[in-house]
Amino acid sequence: MNIFRFAGDMTHLISILVLLLKIYATKSCSGISRKTQELYALVFLARYVDIFTEFISVYNTIMKIVFIASTLAIVWCMRGHRVVRRSYDKELDTFRHYFLIAASLVLALLVHEKFTFQEILWAFSIYLEAVAILPQLVLLQRSGNVDNLTGQYVFFLGAYRGLYILNWIYRYFTEPHFSRWIACVSGLVQTALYADFFYYYFLSWKNNAKLKLPA
């Protein structure tokens, strides 16, 4: 494992912790898209079906469990917690996320490395992860105002994607036979989706102003 991959995993973990902290500390999930969270839960469940059949390292197994458990906890809070549920911006979170699931599934059936159950689920999870942030970005765009922790959450998620790209570049040059274009192309698409957000994030940071997205 290289430093980029590890740093990427850590920023991914931090983003989830920031989100849990926001929900726990403010008892509110305003500004957070439940659809994005449900898509991530689906992404992790589909990708980590190998958790019992394939052992890579203790680190990998623990991280898989943490990602599945924390994302399910967030979804549970947003759906089941009496107080948190009331703050959900239901009328702003209207992205048709079922289209994303259907499109990812069709693409996975057409473009995969091997026609096996696990490989197709794996490709599906990669495609779905690439677009899972869309409902969240649309929600932020609609509400205009982004509170601090929500901004940090999206920032760390974007940082995770950027670091994974550096990780692939590093692996491409250091490991023989490392070329997995399904993940790399999807990863590039996913990172590009953050470009706009990052632009405004750095603008607000530079001007020491509250993060605002243009309508």
């Binding site: 890579i56 991280m63 994974y164 990780n167 036979h177 490392f178 997995r180 993940a183």
Partner: peptide, 10 residues
Amino acid sequence: PPKGSIHDEL
């Protein structure tokens, strides 16, 4: 997974 495989990532 075989060496050089992306499946060892999260």
